[in-house]
Amino acid sequence: MDSAAPVAVSAMPQGNQGPKANHGSTPREDQIAALVKRRNASNAVAGGIMFAAAASSVAITCGIVAMLTLESLPFFREVNLWDFLTDTMWAPLFAAPRYGILPLIAGTFVTTLVALAIALPIGTIIAVYLSEFAPHTVREVIKPATELLSAVPTIVFGYFALQVVTPALQTFIPDLPTFNMLSAGIVMGIMIIPYVSSLSEDALRAVPMLLREGSYGMGASRMQTAFKVVIPSAISGLAAAYILGISRAIGETMIVAVAAGMQPNLTLDPRQPAETITAYIVQVSLGDVEHGTVAFHSIFAAGATLFVLTLGLNVFGHYLRKRYRKAY
């Protein structure tokens, strides 16, 4: 690959020094042909490496799908798919086990919703402030500070929820149980804020200055420009940021495992304790469930459900991006 550069450099002066029209252009053409040949060869090598990198990510995805399918097959031999999707109880470790995924989906759904109610508005406000309002000096301080949040390990957030946020919430909601989805969801939302704000800010900054100047030039204020022109222009990037935030919330494990309680509970009330799909998976993985049992294979069924949920979300996000893509 590196050989192309020296050839290009040495070939050019020779071509320029040589007599021009007198000798005809053959030597020069030969040189260019050789150059092009080398270029093409190095392009092919580089292209191959990049293709391999891209292909490996596809291969890993395929591998994960295959593993989830193969490992959850034994589960679905024992448990009817319909029961799995409609039974309202999840009790795989009971003497008379019940395998209804709905309580886990409800737990995931409620904690995610609470987290998004925190992360999307706050993340967007921070992004709009940083990109449209903040003076340069303020941005230099706030941006790294928010990004520091994402350096905090999630287990720390989990205990923060349990030890700080839940007691604080209990002063407002006296009968709030120690383990509850509200506290876990709020802290999960705080954890996601930097992801949402940083990607949203990138999306807002990508809006060309020319559009802002057009709006300010008409006599718009900062607020009007931000909300009427910049945000609508960045809508597809904002949607991508939100989808990433949602995926993070659905996939988050530690905070909910620590703070939401590990009790499958079919409820939409965030004050209740519950278990999410991810929390169930760690619970079983860390426990002493025997390999090869239905209970063991249930974690793959739960994992496959999670995969389908996030895949659906990503497809939806892809559709949104296409739909709102603007050529500014």
């Binding site: 020319l210 100047e213 057009g214 006599g219 609508p232 500014y328």
Partner: peptide, 17 residues
């Protein structure tokens, strides 16, 4: 001043509306 003095830019810059 911007309300009283209109401006047209080098590249067309319609808003996403």
């Amino acid at each position: 001043m911007r309300m009283r003095i209109g401006m047209v830019f080098q590249k067309p810059n319609p808003f996403p509306k």
